[in-house]
Amino acid sequence: MTDCLVVAGRSFGSRLLVGTGKYRDFAQTRAAVEASGAQIITVAIRRTNIGQKPGEPSLLEVLPPSTYTYLPNTAGCYNAADAVRTLRLARELLDGHDLVKLEVLGDPHTLYPNMPETLKAAQQLVKEGFKVMVYCSDDPIQAQMLEAAGCVAVMPLASLIGSGMGILNPWNLQLVIDKVKVPVLVDAGVGTASDAAIAMELGCDGVLMNTAIAAARDPVLMAKAMKKAVEAGREAFLAGRMPKKLYSAAPSSPTEGTISPSQSKAA
């Protein structure tokens, strides 16, 4: 693999990261994850169902951490303290695994990030040795603060979590990409394959999505589409697109050698 996503010194051939929530069942989760080609998958940390049927499969069995790089998240946390506690539990649960997704939400209606609390949590987690990939606003200044705090990747939203509204502000994403040196991944907002391609064409290092795949009529087929879109967008970015022009002053076909103009047979 020549073109890898490198996060915290680890290389990944796939630039598509997928969530594991909202699927019909574990079989569909696994089929979609496999079809996406993703190597990094996000998981949530939740209270165990006391009295759960013994023998019931767990996510860890369906998608083994030996095959996939887990990215435990802090979804549902609204302050730095809860996010830090959640990831300490994740690290304990996953035998010392330190690559995590930090998200500190502002309110349950928009799920927009609370940036002051996000920064506070990031600083604490970095101090404790975590490798933090951080969900954030698409503000280049905040992104630089998170980078300075030691985060290994910044992950601005392209539109609200679960909205499927696509890349609403490509200019801000561009600014973030230009301003930070760590990988930039679009996290949240992708709705369909073209959105993922646009993010990658802008120069994002990767895309993280869940609902766009899980809520598609055919999640496995959408996962395949997303895989191709991320690859196509990446290749288009590397290829370097042609400049945009209002008029084409250069036709694609030769201007010389056209057949002689028809004689007007005016009576």
Binding site: T20, R47, T48, L59, L89, L94, N210
Partner: peptide
């Protein structure tokens, strides 16, 4: 509020009034 490492499960006695959180990994985005 403090992690009890797996290696200490057998040596950590519970006290009256303790608050425990037991968590697993579940599907999430």
């Amino acid at each position: 509020g403090e992690i009890v490492p797996r290696s200490a499960h057998g040596s950590t006695l519970l006290a009256d009034g303790d608050r425990l959180e037991l968590v697993v990994a579940v599907g999430g985005g």
